[in-house]
């Protein structure tokens, strides 16, 4: 269970507040207008931005002050999820040991993750020699070997086409299901939320609202969400 206990995340002068819990194993979409604080929230949970008030707890353990790499978190960013000068194998291996000194068992784990994400045979390629979808798969393979209970996605598939994006989201959903990880994904698109999320956290003007069941929230949007989604008339304009 992820508990945000009156948490305030600072991004320069901008802050995002959150005070709620997310049950373990949940799949949560974080949606809201751009500039509202979605990325600030997940970067605070991942440890990249300072928490200036409240606490963050994972399974009752206070992780507020822990450095990013020591948190129970695996994160995918909007871009730059792979090191361009390292091979797929090395990039994935970093998820096991950051100094890449892998034993046979660990190498086998890397190979299994690469095969699971459909990249078998491409181990020695560098990211530039992969398609956009394959790059996403390589990053997901690394998330898989990292084996962290909390998976944060900050729109890593935004640059992919709609079909490919759906394919990746389905893969993420499957992987989360298999590993039992808790998933939080930032999204602009309510359809993404409907597709794989059972809960939605709405973020508006630096305030993250407690999670609500996806269908319930999207079918009966509160005014703030309505403004973001746009009324049917304004959508046709």
């Amino acid at each position: 269970m992820l508990k945000l206990d009156a948490t305030i995340v600072a991004n320069g002068d901008f802050t995002t507040r959150a005070d709620f819990t997310i049950p373990a194993g949940a799949k949560v979409a974080v949606i809201g207008p751009s500039g509202a604080g979605k990325s600030t929230l997940v970067e605070g949970i991942a440890g990249f931005l300072p928490v200036t008030g409240g606490r963050i707890l994972w399974q009752g353990r206070d992780i507020t002050r822990e450095p990013p790499g020591k948190r129970p978190v695996a994160m995918l960013f909007q871009d730059g999820n792979l090191f361009p000068h390292l091979t797929v194998e090395q990039n994935v291996g970093l998820g096991v040991r950051p100094d890449l000194r892998l034993n046979a068992e660990q190498k086998a784990r890397v190979a299994r993750a690469i095969a699971r994400t459909g990249l078998a045979g491409l181990e020695t390629r560098k990211p530039a020699a992969l398609s956009g979808g394959q790059q996403s798969r390589a990053a997901l393979a690394r998330v898989l070997v990292q084996n962290r209970p909390l998976l944060l996605l900050d729109e890593p598939f935004a640059a992919l086409g709609p079909a490919l994006k759906t394919e990746m989201l389905d893969l993420v959903s499957e992987l989360a299901q298999e590993t039992g990880a808790t998933l939080m994904m930032v999204s602009h698109d309510p359809n993404d939320a409907r597709r794989i999320a059972d809960l939605v956290v709405l973020v508006t003007e630096g305030h993250a609202h407690p999670p609500r069941p996806t269908a319930e929230l999207l079918d009966n949007p509160p005014p703030a969400l309505q403004r973001y989604l746009g009324s049917p008339e304004s959508r046709t304009r």
Partner: peptide, 19 residues
């Protein structure tokens, strides 16, 4: 460009410098 990813992978310090 790469600092955040390295931090997320806990590869600060020498592994970051070398790799």
């Amino acid at each position: 460009r790469h600092g955040r990813l390295a931090l997320a992978l806990d590869m600060g310090g020498w592994p970051f410098v070398r790799r």
